[in-house]
């Protein structure tokens, strides 16, 4: 298993009758990276995840997860990959410990070791004091943390999460993202699907944008900004002086795509962070620089911009 990819798909396709849920998906995940699947509901994210786990059979194409084929070696895959479904459920009339013991038994973890792991994991996710309480009384956030403990119980190499932060309050979501970073530091490869973009942006090394079963964009957030926003950096300058020469000077900078101004406020769209160059240009054009600020590209903008463009094309 000297495969350098943790997850690799080639032309992965899933059809339900005439409807193509996932269309020729090519996806690769490196060891230890956090990958975000983005896209509107019904774009094929969950179907992709289920195929990676061998819980749904693919129509055609090739998948390898940790060097195993999920369709033919599902037990090997499922023993190494943790899955946190979007709507996580537990047996409400069993306690937190009993719920986890059942999962430990299904994974064939010896009883004594399971007990130790469960104790340390429940402590890690902050559920130590409710170990013997029935899960029925747990809040959504507690369930989610119990879910994380459950996923970590089998000591996975890969964790796949479907909409993990959906329905969490901001504080719980923040804690959850911190947990994801922690897992990444332990060398676990993580794939998560979400449509809460700022959260994805906060933890993902790379993202893939799904639309109608296809992965239409893929790469690190900054690269996507380059592609979609034609830049993505927005500089805001406040300059006193003649607007026309300043605007010309700014436009002449390399990597600037657009300059607009209202009074003494200039907005510059650029492909990279041009603060220093813009300041110099404004001063050389005889202006007095009063303020300078930059907006880094946000995934929200990329997402909105991309889907607007796509709609224009289709319209």
């Amino acid at each position: 298993m000297d495969n350098k990819w943790v997850i690799e798909t080639q032309d992965l396709t899933k059809r339900y009758g005439n409807f193509t849920a996932v269309d020729s998906l090519n996806l690769t995940l490196n060891k230890g990276e956090v990958f975000g699947l983005l896209g509107p509901n019904g774009a094929g994210k969950t179907t992709t995840i289920l195929m990676l786990l061998g819980l749904t059979e693919r129509t055609s194409g090739r998948v390898q997860v940790l060097g195993f084929d999920p369709a033919r070696q599902p037990l090997q895959v499922k023993a190494r990959v943790g899955y946190l479904p979007d709507q996580i459920g537990f047996y409400d009339d069993l306690t937190a410990r009993e719920n986890l013991s059942y999962i430990a038994k299904l994974n064939g973890i010896p009883r004594v070791e399971a007990r130790q792991r469960i104790d340390s994991l429940l402590a890690r996710v902050g559920l130590s004091d409710v170990v013997n309480k029935v899960v029925g009384a747990f809040s959504r956030g507690m369930r989610q943390r119990l879910g994380v403990a459950e996923v970590l119980l089998k000591e996975p190499q890969v964790i796949i999460m479907d909409e993990p932060t959906l329905g969490l309050d901001p504080e719980a979501a923040r804690q959850f993202l911190a947990m994801i970073r922690e897992m990444k530091h332990e060398g676990i490869t993580i794939m998560l699907s979400s449509h809460l973009l700022h959260q994805v942006q906060a933890v993902c090394d790379r993202v893939g944008l799904f639309q109608k079963g296809r992965m239409v964009l893929e790469g690190p957030v900054s690269e996507l900004a380059q592609k979609v926003l034609g830049g993505g950096y927005q500089l805001h300058l406040e300059v006193n002086g003649q607007p026309a020469p300043i605007e010309r000077a700014l436009l002449n900078l390399t990597d600037v795509t657009d300059v607009t101004h209202a009074g003494n406020r200039f907005t510059v769209k650029a492909r990279r962070d041009l603060r220093a160059d813009a300041a110099r240009a404004a001063i050389q054009a005889g202006g007095n620089l009063l303020a300078l600020d930059v907006d880094a590209p946000s995934l929200d903008e990329i997402y909105t911009q991309y889907f607007q463009e796509v709609e224009h094309v289709h319209a």
Partner: peptide, 11 residues
């Protein structure tokens, strides 16, 4: 109870 997918995700 939404436990089915979680249980079937075990080996």
């Amino acid at each position: 109870q939404r436990t089915l997918s979680r249980v079937l995700a075990q080996p």
